[in-house]
Design a protein around this nucleic acid. Structure first.
Length: 432
DNA sequence: TCTGGGGTCCTAGGACCC
DNA sequence: TCTGGGGTCCTAGGACCC
């Protein structure tokens, strides 16, 4: 028999910042989203101050100033690099892992292994090699492994629910609020509360058909998983790639956008980013949508959101073609008179590029364009964004320079690149 | 003044087909 | 006037995740 395990990095972004900045040790630290708008990571100390997840910065400004909280803009490139280091270390311990998010991985282990000891070894190795603290939980299903991890984080122990007795398991479930269960969000939790279901134990004991009706098949699966019946297996990287549905790039604007010219600029930039990421994954897109939104927090004006989709007969991965589709969408979706707060581009209908090449009339052109894009991406990865771009494409650096434009700033104590840029490696100097 | 971004899956309803 | 039933595909919207 095999056990499911979940490893997750504690307060991941905040912990990464701490690895590279000794001043942050034992101090409250928060990391900010794009535009320095929201809190997206908090160290334990910051959580203890009552700073909520996804709290808008301006709402917790007082707490931050009063308690000398260290504030940092996010540096996703660095977090991505540290994430792959953790995942590589985990692969030393199990051949069967699913990278679930930037800071989490499920994996399986033989249930006969001494699990808490095994978990301790993994945790020690990750700590030693990366400086990052992780939590690990074991159980019979993914949902229960999540729960074991959740409990472990509180107790700072490796929790093995796989070998827990019925009464131990019941105690653990009884002490867990239902909204802490993986798959139960605040909407479902509210609904469940109306029926008196407030703990994970109560949900586990709920009638399966009732759960199916009330929370759809996903809710029924959650109930089964809590009972120890596994409904979810590990999803491995190749399958994941094949099953990928969409690649998107969207941003909120620093100031309201009211001209089509500015919107065109933003949409072109987002298209470029999304297309680059899509090619890195090896896909071409068969369809593309553009969405524009007004400010959802301004209740006095009516919130307005609109989407247009372009579906192509043949998939493409080339910027000039994708940009034509995007601008076609923009023409249909843009209404003068609205003040827009956010826009995004979604690439869908993804097919692996090699399978996409079913062009009758312009196969040669398409193949050559694909090679060109590969060279462009490679160059830009090596020498920096926008080193090569098409003449009519946007230059992010230029847009950034105009400090009064729609492009937001994220520059509070921004971390250096550290592990992702040779020029910024730490240097150690000898005294005297 | 100031409120993230990138994903997944499910469901309901409409269009269309036989 | 009467106006089936079953299937598929697509889309919009909702809920959830990190």
């Amino acid at each position: 028999m095999t056990a499911f395990a979940l490893l997750d990095c504690n307060n991941f972004y905040a912990s990464v910042e701490r690895v590279f900045d000794a001043r942050l040790h034992k101090r409250p630290v928060v990391v900010l989203s794009n535009n320095d708008g929201c809190i997206i990571a908090r160290s334990q100390e910051a959580k203890a101050l009552g700073i909520g997840m996804a709290a808008p910065l301006f709402k917790v400004k007082d707490i931050i100033e009063k308690n000398n909280v260290f504030v940092k803009s996010a540096n996703f490139e660095l977090y991505g690099d540290m994430s792959s280091r953790v995942m590589e270390l985990l692969e030393e311990f199990s051949p069967d892992i699913e990278i679930y998010s930037i800071d989490e991985a499920f994996f399986t282990v033989p249930a006969s292994a001494p699990l808490t000891q095994f978990g301790g070894e993994i945790r020690g190795r990750v700590r030693k090699c990366t400086g990052l603290p992780v939590s690990i939980g074991f159980a019979k299903t993914k949902t229960l492994a999540k729960l074991a991890n959740y409990l472990g984080k509180r107790s700072e122990k490796i929790v093995d629910l796989y070998h827990a007795s019925d009464s131990e398991l019941e105690r653990a479930l009884a002490g867990t609020p239902v909204e802490a269960v993986w798959g139960i969000g605040h909407r479902s939790a509210k609904k469940l509360k109306q029926y008196g279901i407030v703990t994970a134990l109560a949900l586990r004991n709920a009638d399966l058909n009732w759960a199916r009706k009330t929370l759809s098949v996903l809710g029924a699966r959650t109930v089964l998983e809590l009972r120890g019946t596994s409904c979810y297996s590990l999803t491995h990287t190749p399958d994941e790639l094949a099953a990928r549905r969409a690649v998107t790039c969207s941003r909120s604007f620093a100031k309201i956008v009211t001209t089509k010219q500015e919107m065109k600029e933003a949409v072109s930039l987002f298209l470029g980013r999304a297309a680059e990421r899509m090619r890195k994954l090896g896909f071409a897109a068969g369809a593309l949508s553009v969405h524009l939104n007004t400010d959802r927090f301004k209740i006095r004006d009516e919130y307005h959101s609109n989407t247009a989709t372009y579906a192509s007969a043949v998939p493409s991965d080339a910027n000039p073609e994708l940009l034509r589709w995007a601008l076609d969408c923009l023409d249909r979706v843009y209404h003068p008179g609205f003040g827009y707060k956010k826009a995004g581009v979604i690439l869908t209908g993804l097919v692996p590029f090699n399978e996409a090449n079913a062009r009758l009339l312009d196969e040669e052109y398409c193949r050559r364009m694909h090679s060109l894009m590969r060279v462009m991406d490679k160059t830009n990865r090596r020498w920096g964004r926008d080193t090569i771009r098409f003449f009519n494409e946007q230059n992010e650096k230029e847009i950034r320079k105009r400090t009064t434009g729609w492009y937001g700033k994220s520059d509070v104590n921004k971390a250096g690149s550290h592990t992702t840029n040779f020029g910024e490696l730490c240097s150690v100097e000898r005294e005297g």
